[in-house]
Nucleic acid binder design. Structure first.
Lengths: 204, 204
DNA sequence: CAACTTTTTTAAACAACTTTTCAAATTTTT
DNA sequence: AAAAATTTGAAAAGTTGTTTAAAAAAGTTG
């Protein structure tokens, strides 16, 4: 039986993980068959269970990784007391655009599981670090001082929406040739500057 | 075998459809069992196949409906030559907020299947009516006239993002008590006026 | 290096579950 | 009353996650 995790094996275990990342991310938990992962990894079916005990355990690993990537860096930015609101948001936007350009299927994957409510996200993300971050305090203070006319949540929803939505819509946009393959990247790079600009309008 | 579609039966067939809408929308295609639908509809398992031939066919019907609801009304608005850009967008925003307040699970459901790429969406949505609509022509003209500094797609992504994102994020927001149950509706109603306002900033 | 132990890999099969089919029973329509 | 449509329970056919037992490979020890 599988004993330790960290022998000297990087090969098979990592192949499975890599495959799992791809398939789970693309199709979600329910639609993914263990056989799909084995095929993608080009290994024997049984090895998935041998190394990860179960489909669910493997999924948890992949999900934990994803949440980590998504939350950890952002939490740091949000809690940096040196940065003002626009600085924080600009940094966060750039981090996410970078991340999502590399992992375009990420948003669906997470949104999917967030709503599925199996709640891996809630379990793994210490969301208090986000929702009770320094940034949020800054926004609430601004509101209290009468310098922000709307609920801070509006601002956050807009930022997230403006960053993430394009990635969710991407397949649609490209399928309809409204945006060509490489043009999408260009557009997202434009947005690095545009979103902070638009946001200034919302805050001011 | 199931022959025609439109006899005089409204009862069983409609019960199944209603159940399918609920379950498919909430859990997606793969996670939904025909048994779930039968249970939700409170009818015998076999009747699902009797009326809709297969799980997949049933899904297609539900998906087609959803896309219809999502696209048809909007296409009409987008192509109304009497309306200027802000009017069109305001109308569209209100339509979507109404629709999504009634069907909160819609966005995930669609986004899910858009990316799944089984492509029901592309098949059923005559997207040209959206992406080549009068609204788009208006935006491109504005751009050509130098009165809009960014690619029109940016504008569209923002509108969609600002409307849809909150619904995707809702479970997260409520789970973290950042937004209480009824407060969400209030916030979305605020957005009916706010989004057009923010948009004016982007267009001007 | 040869005998052994342990780890890894493989093919097969199990068991549980799911979709679909079927034939008979029931209800509705003509 | 006959015909057609609907409903039902059971079972067939197919998937899917997991287990098993044996083979192969790698590692260890005297």
């Amino acid at each position: 039986m599988a004993t330790g995790k960290k022998e000297q094996d990087a090969s098979t275990e990592e192949k499975i993980l890599a495959a799992a990342r791809i398939v789970f991310t693309r199709k979600g938990f329910a639609a993914t068959k263990v056989r799909d992962i084995a095929a993608e990894a080009d290994i024997n079916l049984s090895l998935v269970n041998y190394y990860f005990r179960s489909k669910e355990k493997l999924f948890e690993v992949v999900m934990a990784e994803a949440v980590q990537k998504l939350v950890f860096e952002i939490a740091t930015i949000f809690n940096d007391e040196q940065l003002d609101i626009p600085e924080k948001i600009t940094k966060a936007i750039n981090y996410y655009i970078d991340l999502l350009l590399e992992n375009p299927d990420f948003p669906l994957f997470l949104v999917n599981e967030i709503i599925a409510g199996d709640d891996m996200f809630t379990r793994y993300a210490q969301q208090n670090t986000l929702f009770k971050s320094h940034l949020f305090r800054q926004l609430y203070e601004l509101k209290a001082a009468g310098k922000l006319s709307v609920h801070p949540v509006h601002i956050m929803m807009n930022v997230i929406g403006m960053v993430v939505m394009p990635f969710l819509a991407r397949p649609l946009l490209e399928r309809n040739e409204l945006v060509k393959d490489n043009e999408f990247v260009t557009l997202m790079n434009e947005r690095r500057k545009l979103i902070p600009l638009w946001l200034k309008g919302m805050l001011g």
